[in-house]
Amino acid sequence: MQANLISADRLADYSTKEFGPIVVALAFVIAVGGMTAAAIMLCGWKGARSIGVNVAERRVEIICR
């Protein structure tokens, strides 16, 4: 890291190890949020009964009320 008033010790390790699980969790929640938003837009005021992921056919299935 460049900073003209200070030079970093190259051997110093300031890595933060728990970044991965937290970011993956956030990405998953955002993905679920996206599917929920899709359910709201598609089903409107009636609401949705269920939402599922069909991995074999690679699609999300939303069943409205």
């Binding site: 728990e18 937290i22 956030l26 929640v29 679920v32 929920t36 938003a37 359910a39 709201i40 949705a48």
Partner: peptide, 22 residues
């Protein structure tokens, strides 16, 4: 502090899930 974005996101998605009528 580190998990606040995830906790907030869960709350928002839960609210959306209620609006969606799941």
């Amino acid at each position: 502090r580190a998990t606040t974005p995830v906790l907030l996101a869960i709350g928002v998605v839960a609210a959306m899930g209620w609006v969606a009528g799941f």
